[in-house]
């Protein structure tokens, strides 16, 4: 069964969820859009393509406390902090949802990350189909958009002044029920409308790559090409910061007298110190080795490990690169040689 909701009612619905959930939605701030928890004075907007930074911080915080400790006699008392707050993440795009499912693979497996999965478990994903791509988007090539067929609790699709709402899970149905009166049944013709919107969106995507071809060719790229590309990298770590699938972190302890805390912080393999070892040896001491590793990570190593590409085609790395590196341009050029 499908539902529809009028554009003007979406805000009403989200506001009603606030008493039971922390609602995170696209909010207009200083003339741009950020994902923010809704408060009384935030202005949610439906007029956005995507945010510059992915919503990954709502699952893997930039600074996350793992536990705190305090001396107790001869011993230490350790208290873990697991975030189990109930949240709704509204308006997340298909590329970013796909990124989350990739992070599920990374943090899952034999050693499940309790912090990540507690947040994940307690967050209801209300995804939003893309009807208007950004200039650097290429989700279609990566199979991660512009819409989703799975991995959502609810999926919204804009059809003029009405939004189509599809239910993916019981979790999604639960929050829809909380303000049932705002949702009306949608008939099957809406599904066709949605299909048309998606096709139209695909046509607007300017960039196309073939990730399978690229993943093969990457293994044979000449060192000189990596060196030339590496020259432009300014080792700022910005690409890792905004990338929805990058997840590496550093762990540091803070001590204050007889107590303290252990936290983890976002890190980046594009920084030279990331792989530096005791004695100063650095297996990825050059910029070319780091950028080679980054592209292979996204297009080969992820695939080898999880059977899926590690890039979701959001284009953000190109948006923030200080060295003006356009990954898609580079990969296309490399593909031609």
């Amino acid at each position: 069964m499908m539902w529809k909701i009028d554009k003007g009612d979406i805000l009403k619905w989200l506001k009603s969820l606030k008493k039971d959930f922390e609602v995170i939605a696209p909010v207009k701030v200083h003339g741009e859009v950020l994902f923010m928890p809704l408060s009384d004075d935030t202005e949610i907007t439906l007029d956005y393509t995507n945010t510059l930074e992915s919503p990954k911080e709502f699952f893997l915080p930039k600074t996350e406390e793992m536990f705190n400790f305090r001396r107790k006699g001869e011993d230490f008392e350790i208290t873990s902090k697991i975030d189990d707050k109930k949240r709704v993440l509204f308006g997340i795009r298909p590329c970013d949802v796909n990124a989350l499912t990739l992070l599920d693979e990374v943090f899952g497996g034999k050693y499940r990350d309790p912090y990540y999965f507690s947040i994940r478990r307690n967050t209801t994903i209300v995804a939003m189909t893309c009807v208007q791509p950004d200039i650097n988007c290429f989700c279609d090539s990566m199979g991660t958009g512009p819409s989703l067929s799975r991995d959502f609790d609810l999926l919204f699709t804009e059809l003029d002044e009405t939004y189509l709402v599809e239910v993916g899970t019981n979790k999604g149905e639960e929050i829809l029920k909380l303000k049932k009166d705002l949702f009306k049944e949608a008939d099957e013709t809406r599904r066709d409308e949605k299909k048309r919107k998606i096709e139209a969106a695909k046509k607007k995507i300017k960039r196309r790559i073939d990730p399978f071809e690229i993943s093969k060719k990457l293994k044979y790229v000449d060192d000189e090409i990596w060196r030339k590309l590496g020259e432009r990298c300014m080792s700022c770590g910005g690409c890792s910061h905004v990338c929805p699938t990058c997840h590496c972190f550093d762990i540091r302890d803070i001590f204050v007298d007889e107590a303290g805390k252990r936290r983890r912080y976002w890190d980046s393999c594009m920084l030279p110190g990331f792989t530096r070892m005791a004695g100063g040896v650095n297996p990825r001491g050059t910029k070319e080795s780091r950028i080679k590793q980054r592209y292979n990570c996204k297009f080969n190593y992820f695939f080898e490990r999880y059977g899926r590409f590690g890039c979701v085609g959001c284009g953000r790395c190109t948006d923030v690169c200080q060295g003006n590196i356009d990954m898609v341009e580079f990969l296309k050029e490399m593909n031609h040689h």
């Binding site: 741009e32 600074t63 910061h241 923030v320 690169c321």
Partner: peptide, 16 residues
């Protein structure tokens, strides 16, 4: 943490 802005003179970019 720090969140980038798409506006201002740096338009999304920041250094380390």
């Amino acid at each position: 943490g720090v969140t980038p802005t798409a506006r201002a003179i740096n338009k999304g970019r920041l250094c380390v």
